[in-house]
Simulated assay, not measured.
Amino acid sequence: MLLKTINYDSVTNFIELYDQYKKNNHLSFEDFFRKYIPTLNKNANNCVGLALLLIEKLKQFDDRYSGIKNCFYLVSCEINLQSFDKYENTEYPCPWLSVNEHIMVALKIEIDGRVGVLLLDPGYPLDRVITVMNDQEYPNTGHFLSSTNPEEVYLIEMIMQGKYLQWSIYDESNLKETNLIYIGAPYLSPISVTERRNLVFTYRFFFSLSEKGENLSGIFAKIDEHILCLYYIDEDYPKEKQIIKLTPELFSSVNQLNSDIKKTLDRISHHLKISSKELWNILTKLNHIIEDEQFLDSLCKINNDIQNLNSGK
Rank of each mutant, 00 (worst) to 15 (best):
C94I: 03
Y87R: 07
W96N: 11
S66F: 10
M104D: 01
V105E: 01
C71G: 01
W96A: 11
V99H: 08
N89R: 09
K86M: 14
N100D: 06
E78S: 04
G67R: 09
N70F: 12
A106I: 01
N80C: 10
I109E: 03
F72R: 06
Y65F: 15
V105K: 01
P93D: 08
W96I: 08
L74W: 09
V99G: 11
H102K: 01
D62V: 02
E91W: 00
P95H: 04
I103L: 05
K69T: 09
D63M: 10
D62H: 03
Q82R: 08
E101M: 09
M104N: 07
F61I: 12
L97V: 05
V75Q: 07
Y92N: 00
K86Q: 15
L81P: 04
G67H: 11
K69L: 02
D62C: 03
L58F: 02
N89C: 05
L81K: 12
K69D: 13
C77R: 05
P95D: 04
L58P: 01
C94Q: 02
C94R: 01
N89W: 03
N100M: 00
C77Q: 07
L81Q: 10
R64S: 12
E91Y: 00
S98F: 03
N70A: 13
K69P: 06
Q60M: 13
E110P: 07
D63Y: 12
I103N: 10
E101R: 11
E91M: 00
I68T: 05
P93T: 09
S83R: 08
A106G: 06
C77M: 09
L97Q: 07
F61C: 13
D63W: 07
P93I: 09
K69A: 10
N100Q: 02
W96G: 02
N89D: 12
I68N: 06
Y73E: 11
Q60D: 13
I111P: 08
L107Y: 07
P93M: 11
W96V: 06
I103H: 08
A106W: 03
K69Y: 05
V75I: 11
E110F: 07
Y65C: 08
S66E: 10
L81D: 05
S83T: 15
F72E: 03
H102V: 00
S83N: 11
Y87V: 01
A106L: 03
K57T: 06
L58R: 02
S76A: 14
M104H: 02
L74Y: 08
C94N: 11
Y65L: 12
Q82H: 07
Y92V: 03
L107E: 00
S76T: 12
Y65R: 07
K57C: 07
I68V: 13
N70P: 08
E91C: 00
V75M: 08
I68F: 10
K86I: 14
S98K: 03
Y73K: 12
K57W: 01
K69I: 04
V75T: 08
I103C: 11
P95Q: 04
A106H: 02
L81H: 05
L58S: 00
V75G: 14
F61M: 15
E88L: 15
I109P: 04
S98V: 00
Y73R: 11
S66W: 05
Q60E: 15
E110A: 13
Y73C: 11
N70I: 01
C71Y: 00
Q82N: 13
I111R: 10
E101Q: 13
S76D: 13
E101A: 09
L81Y: 06
F84I: 12
I109A: 03
F61S: 14
